[in-house]
Amino acid sequence: MKVSAQEVQYIAKLARLEIPEEDLALFVRQFNDILGYAGMLGKLDTEKVEPTAQVLPYGNVMREDAAGTPLTQEEALSNAPAQKDGGYLVARVMEGGGV
């Protein structure tokens, strides 16, 4: 497994991060180190191990459909850098970002 500089740039773009050209080599090396380390798992015999997406020994953690107390509008907006008409004010939304 080898991650290229191009792939690192692509992943950075998806995460809305800007990586200066001079730091790129560092990140490429770190990406490969991390993936290489995790890649060691690939050498293990997992024939008899069930696949899982969760290491916690829990399942079916659910709550009843009973209403709690939400935040007030004032509380909800108290961390917002800018607000308007009871809502969070955000910069112009670029088309093509949504679902």
Partner: peptide, 18 residues
Amino acid sequence: FCSCPAEFGGEPNTHTCP
């Protein structure tokens, strides 16, 4: 995934939590 009311409408940001 939280106990905020799911009903339609309401004043903006009055059905929210962390």
